[in-house]
Simulated assay, not measured.
Amino acid sequence: MTGERQGAARGEFTGLAAVVTGGASGIGLATAGLLAARGARVACLDLHPEQVPAPLLGLAADVTDDGSVRAAVASAAEALGGIDVLVNNAGIGARGTVESNPDDEWHRVFDVNVVGIARVTRAALPHLRASAHAAIVNTCSIAAWAGLPDRALYSATKGAVQSLTLAMAADHVREGIRVNCVNPGTVDTPWVRRLLAAAEDPEAELAALQARQPTGRLVGAEEVAAAIAYLAGPLAGATTGTVLGVDGGMHGLRLRPGPPPPI
C-alpha cells in the first residue's frame, strides 16, 4: 500500500460517528479502538459501560430491552452528532447439542444474538438514513457456515444473523445504507478463555481449537476489528450484502494432515 493510501486508511473515518454494541471487551472493544484511531467518534453500548476506556464513550444498554436500546442510541446520536456506522457486535454463546439447552435458554440466546440486532438497527436507522456514509456491520461466526460439535443453539443464532444481514442489505441498499457481516473463526477473547479455563484439560482444548484453523492459531480480536473497519469504511463503498470470513482458512481450506504453517 502506498503512503498516500495508508494515510487515507488511517484517517478514513474522520468526521464520522460510530456505535459499537458489546464494545467493552473482546472484538467490540478492539473494533471501537480501531475506528477511533482512524478518526471516528465512537460510542460503545454495553451492559458494563464503566469498562469502556476513554476517549471512547461508554453507554449502558441491554440489547434485549427495547427501551434501553432506544435511549442509548438516542444518547449516542446526540453526543456524537449523528450515527454513520453501526457495528452490531453484542452476543452471547451457548454450548450443547440440540437437546441440551432448555427452551428459556433458546429464547434468551436468540433474543440477544438475533433480535438484539433488530432492536439496535431499527433504533439507529433514522440516523443512518441521514448520513452520507451509512454502513452496518454485524458480527456473525464461522458457525453460520460450518457444522461445529456441541454448538447447536449458538450456530442456529449465527445462521440467522447471516441471513438477516443479507435481507437487511437488500432492504436498505437503495437508502444508501450498506450492510455486511464478518464470520470470525475461534477468536482469542475473554469468553473463549473462560471456556478454556472450564475445560477438563485446558491445554488440550486450546490445541484442538488451534488445530482446526488451517493457520494453526486462534484469530486475534484485532484481526476481526480490521475486517469490520474495512467493511464499515468509505473505501468499501461498493461492498454490501457480503459475508467476510476471518477464520484462519477454516471455512474454505481443506489441507492434508501436517504441521501448522510457521506463522
Results as ranks from 00 to 15, higher is better:
Gly11Ile: 01
Gly11Asn: 13
Gly11Arg: 11
Gly11Trp: 09
Glu12Pro: 00
Phe13Glu: 03
Gly15Ala: 15
Gly15Cys: 12
Gly15Trp: 01
Gly15Asn: 08
Leu16Ile: 00
Leu16His: 07
Leu16Met: 11
Leu16Glu: 04
Ala17Pro: 01
Ala17Ser: 15
Ala18Met: 01
Ala18Leu: 07
Ala18Gln: 03
Ala18Tyr: 10
Val20Asn: 11
Val20Lys: 14
Val20Phe: 10
Val20Pro: 06
Thr21Ala: 03
Thr21Lys: 03
Gly22Phe: 13
Gly22Trp: 04
Gly22Ser: 02
Gly22Ile: 05
Gly22Pro: 12
Ala24Phe: 05
Ala24Ile: 07
Gly26Tyr: 11
Gly26Pro: 00
Gly26Arg: 09
Gly26Asn: 03
Ile27Ala: 10
Ile27Met: 14
Gly28Tyr: 00
Gly28Gln: 12
Gly28Ala: 00
Leu29Arg: 13
Ala30Gln: 09
Ala30Asp: 11
Thr31Phe: 08
Thr31Gly: 07
Ala32Asp: 03
Gly33Cys: 08
Gly33Asp: 05
Gly33Thr: 11
Leu34Phe: 00
Leu34Ser: 03
Leu35Pro: 13
Leu35Asp: 07
Leu35Lys: 09
Leu35Arg: 12
Ala36Glu: 12
Ala36Val: 08
Ala36Gly: 10
Ala36Cys: 11
Ala36Tyr: 06
Ala37Lys: 11
Ala37His: 02
Arg38Ile: 00
Arg38Trp: 12
Gly39Arg: 05
Gly39Cys: 13
Gly39Trp: 02
Ala40Met: 10
Arg41Glu: 05
Arg41Gln: 09
Arg41Cys: 04
Arg41Leu: 05
Val42Asp: 07
Ala43Ser: 07
Ala43Gln: 04
Cys44Met: 10
Leu45Val: 06
Leu45Glu: 06
Asp46Leu: 04
Leu47Ser: 09
His48Gln: 15
His48Met: 14
His48Tyr: 11
Pro49His: 11
Pro49Ala: 06
Pro49Tyr: 02
Glu50Phe: 15
Glu50Arg: 13
Glu50Ser: 14
Glu50Cys: 05
Gln51Ala: 15
Gln51Val: 12
Gln51Thr: 15
Gln51His: 12
Val52Ile: 08
Val52Gly: 05
Val52Pro: 15
Pro53Asp: 00
Ala54Pro: 13
Ala54Glu: 14
Ala54Gln: 15
Pro55Phe: 12
Pro55Thr: 08
Pro55Cys: 10
Leu56Ile: 15
Leu56Lys: 12
Leu56Asn: 12
Leu56Trp: 09
Leu56His: 09
Leu57Gly: 00
Gly58Trp: 03
Leu59Arg: 05
Leu59Met: 12
Leu59Ile: 05
